[in-house]
Design a protein around this nucleic acid. Sequence first.
DNA 1: CGTATTCTTGACCCGCTTCAACTCAAGTGG
DNA 2: CCACTTGAGTTGAAGCGGGTCAAGAATACG
Lengths: 223, 223
Amino acid sequence: MRSIARYRQADRRLEAGAQLFRPGEQCQEIFQLVEGSAFLYTLFPDGRRQILHFVLPGAVLGFHPAQDTMTTYGVEALTDIVVAAYRVRASVLYERHPEIGMELAWLLSRDLRLAFDHLASIGRLSAPERIAHLLLELFVRYRLRWPGHRIEDLHLPLTQEHIGDATGLTGVHVSRVLHDLRKRGIIQFRYRQLCILDPDRLMELAAVDPYVLQGWVGSGPPR
Amino acid sequence: MRSIARYRQADRRLEAGAQLFRPGEQCQEIFQLVEGSAFLYTLFPDGRRQILHFVLPGAVLGFHPAQDTMTTYGVEALTDIVVAAYRVRASVLYERHPEIGMELAWLLSRDLRLAFDHLASIGRLSAPERIAHLLLELFVRYRLRWPGHRIEDLHLPLTQEHIGDATGLTGVHVSRVLHDLRKRGIIQFRYRQLCILDPDRLMELAAVDPYVLQGWVGSGPPR
DNA sequence: CGTATTCTTGACCCGCTTCAACTCAAGTGG
DNA sequence: CCACTTGAGTTGAAGCGGGTCAAGAATACG
């Protein structure tokens, strides 16, 4: 994103829980997450929420070519975050900065793969399987970005409500399932601390092939 | 895609029901759908299937930068189709044909938006709502591509099994819900013929805002 | 400490699945 | 022209996974 540095404005800092933009909002900028993590979500008229995607540093947010400025989802900070903001319309990027097109395509392609995976999980797996799937995905992606001390322990800044909204379940049921998964010795998730007790059984439960896992890790675009 | 014409091979023709490629297969080419329609799907070890996305002419298939050749989903022809095939690896495109990057980003961005929409539908809507949502999406996209004679009638080459696999339901339940939707005077779907009886109530049921619908139609990349 | 979130647990209920039998249409071949 | 097949759709009965509602416990926070 070096060639478009001229459009870059002051970095923006947001506290955990704050909105970068809301669903349906006009949004004249393109963002890139620099620090912390966040999630994309949609709201339904009756207030129900679906979390679409968790984003880590490097992700591009707000690139909406077709209708240029209109967003159909919102972005909320999961931790305190820092985002770079570029005041430029997608159509201008298209016409005058084709050199970043491939980088965008690379990022979008990875997000699309994750979205398809998420979709299949929600559509066809049971509650325990979905939760296993999500936690495994997040474990792998977070661990890659922030290598920690102990191999199997990880701080995930999620409430059970988040897990429910991401998997299409209720927070109540997530609680029950997590309890059960701990009893079965597969994973433990307490107070935002995730511990993988039995990696093999977790992968089996989540119906995740090793090579799919490769895609989550996904080499970034060549520099 | 003009600048990469040198990689183009003979067009491929597939009959309805044939596989362009299967999940987990090596895939050395990048495709573009020329004629007909198809769908992306994943399979689980126990045989359950989730349809991820329906693709119409113009869609790029098999662009997998991260692991270059490995696919995590399959593509099956819904009707007889024609696809253009380019024998080139994603990494070569990245390095030597950056000029098509923006076009790819444009296409991927639209697919991602559709995937997010689909995700939210499966995660948070009831069976009737999901089916309404899917059929409305397909109606809008197909109609744009193949403007028909009567406004409210459309040939959709789907079985109820397809609808079930796309919405995360069983074929049996799709049958019941369709019966009910017809009785309520909202839509009719018999023998692959979709008829929208009450557009307003359909959009309300599917929880689709008009501007989201804009995104489905989505202007292609500027030429 | 006291208060606000988040999490836990129980009882009850309903939407969707499962299984299975049956209908219906469209081929196919004798 | 008619038996046989094959795939899609329909319908019913029974079961269960996960939702809902509500009360209470645990933890974080000021």
